[in-house]
Design a binder for these strands. Structure first.
Lengths: 120, 120
DNA sequence: ATAACATATGAACAATAGCTCATTTGTTTT
DNA sequence: AAAACAAATGAGCTATTGTTCATATGTTAT
């Protein structure tokens, strides 16, 4: 009750009441925004982006990806785990080999949207 | 010439020649992929995502955003700088006040694509 | 010019992330 | 069962990042 807002505030808020109401109305839940940020974090690393581009062509095993990107098996495996946890890639095992592939079309559309912005 | 590839390799590469050729053909330049990752890094923080959602409703000054998100002016200003550098927001000065707004429609489409994936 | 306000910025610190190295797990072959 | 191979994992190290705090810059009003 007597807890004070310690954040500095400007003398008067510029935004009108209706705007503020709309912001609060349309702002997704904290949890969703957190998840969204986590998802984009995954795209925020060029190694992972390269892996995704490789998988655009075909499913591929860890070692092949490592060779194509000239990186260690361990580094690729760690990154594939992140991609897996975000449900951006899926995998199937075939003997000793594990083949990874893109989970769905979102990967492509998200990267394409980003590309459009970067290309400008 | 005598520089050796120190990366471990599997006994045989699974991917066929034509696949490897296509990967190398369709893989964007290193520099582009770096820029792309940098762009997604910007989306990879929930504070910045919140700022963008706020700006969906209306242009807004730094202090208003800070109040809406209950954060310090400094923190918001720092993040707005990142958004500005990535050309995701633009600004105009009106006296002491600086109003920020979304730079273009890419912001919305990128966030929407991400949302689609998260919502699953 | 001075005071007041809005914003920007730099240094510092804690938390996070990506890579390497060593090792483990899972599978196949002998 | 043992050896060999592919992949996964954990610890450790360095680099990066988001916030805070203090201060500087830019603009307006007195």
């Amino acid at each position: 009750m007597d807890e004070q807002n310690t954040i500095e505030r400007c003398d008067y808020i510029h935004a009108h009441e209706d705007i503020i109401a709309k912001v609060n109305e349309n702002m997704p839940d904290e949890e969703i925004l957190y998840d969204l940020a986590e998802l984009f974090k995954i795209f925020g690393d060029s190694t992972r982006i390269k892996i995704l581009y490789v998988l655009f062509e075909s499913e591929m095993c860890v070692c092949d990806i490592a060779q194509l990107l000239n990186m260690t098996q361990s580094a690729i495996s760690h990154q594939l785990r992140a991609l897996k946890q975000s449900k951006l890639v899926k995998y199937r095992r075939e003997g000793k080999t594990v083949f990874y592939s893109l989970a769905d079309d979102h990967v492509r559309s998200i990267l394409d949207q980003g590309m459009e912005h970067v290309a400008e």
